[in-house]
């Protein structure tokens, strides 16, 4: 569980996140949605500790991120997996090398154990053995995302962060990625936070949805509530897509 309390973040006096409080539940896919420039990425990176916040508290279970020293943060980060928008795979090493990297860096596993873990993670994201030796530039965008997910779960994290995990993917592959993240969240009992503006993701896996607008918390609910809400800003955001407008009418 991650608890965010009264979070404020500004850049050069410009307040980007204003007084956001939210609880991200364990074992659920927690989505952050909002227009481009609404502050989603800043919120995500603040929760991750990549940005120093102005005010507020960020609790990872019973540990306050803000009060942690550099050493404690480093240790805690080994409990975090992150899937970046572009995959962020290390392009100078192979697919299996990417998964093995955190294992090499932070575990005392034998080579055989590492290979087994690599195979386990890649198998969980449906990457075939033939692709293990390929380099990131030699695989498709969808595969890169799946490898990025496999790398994120390599150290068996408690917390999984995904920044626009299905951007740039076709709708079918995007659904596969969404479902994969949801299944992994359930299987490994992780606290998953997904940053997205893809309404398909919201409808597919939005167990808990936070809608932010201009850096403020505007609405919180689930995918079932989202089509029934009266919140004007949220309705404007969702029903900009005619398909969802028809769903609401229908």
């Amino acid at each position: 569980m991650i608890d965010v309390k009264n979070l404020y973040k500004s850049f050069d006096g410009n307040e980007v996140i204003k007084n956001i409080s939210i609880r991200f539940e364990k074992g659920k896919t927690n989505l952050i949605i909002g227009r481009s420039g609404s502050g989603k990425t800043v919120l995500l990176k603040s929760v991750l500790g990549l940005y120093d916040i102005d005010k507020g508290e960020i609790w990872y279970n019973d540990r306050n991120l803000i009060q942690m020293g550099e050493k404690e943060r480093k240790i805690m980060r080994q409990e975090i997996g992150m899937v970046f928008q572009g995959g962020a795979l290390f392009d100078s090493i192979s697919v299996e090398g990417n998964i093995r990297f955190p294992l090499d860096m932070f575990t005392r596993m034998t080579f055989k154990e590492k290979q087994e873990r690599v195979a386990f993670c890649l198998d969980h994201v449906n990457i075939e053995k033939q692709a293990f030796k390929l380099f990131p530039s030699e695989i498709s965008g969808g595969m890169q995302k799946r490898v990025a997910i496999a790398r994120a779960i390599a150290l068996n994290p408690k917390y999984l962060f995904c920044d626009e995990p299905n951007s740039g993917l076709d709708p079918e592959t995007a659904t596969v990625i969404d479902k994969l993240i949801q299944n992994l969240t359930k299987e490994f009992e992780m606290t998953t936070i997904i940053n997205t503006h893809d309404m398909n993701s919201v409808i597919e896996i939005g167990e808990s949805v936070l809608f932010i607008s201009k850096g403020e918390k505007e609405w919180v609910g689930s995918k079932d509530d989202i089509l029934k809400t009266d919140n004007k800003k949220l309705n404007d955001f969702i029903f900009a897509n005619k398909l969802y407008a028809q769903m609401k009418k229908g």
Binding site: M82, G86, A88, P102, F106
Partner: peptide
């Protein structure tokens, strides 16, 4: 620019 450095930092690597 491809966030590979952020990725290292998130893992806890200097």
């Amino acid at each position: 620019v491809t966030e590979q450095i952020d990725s290292l930092e998130i893992m806890g690597v200097n």
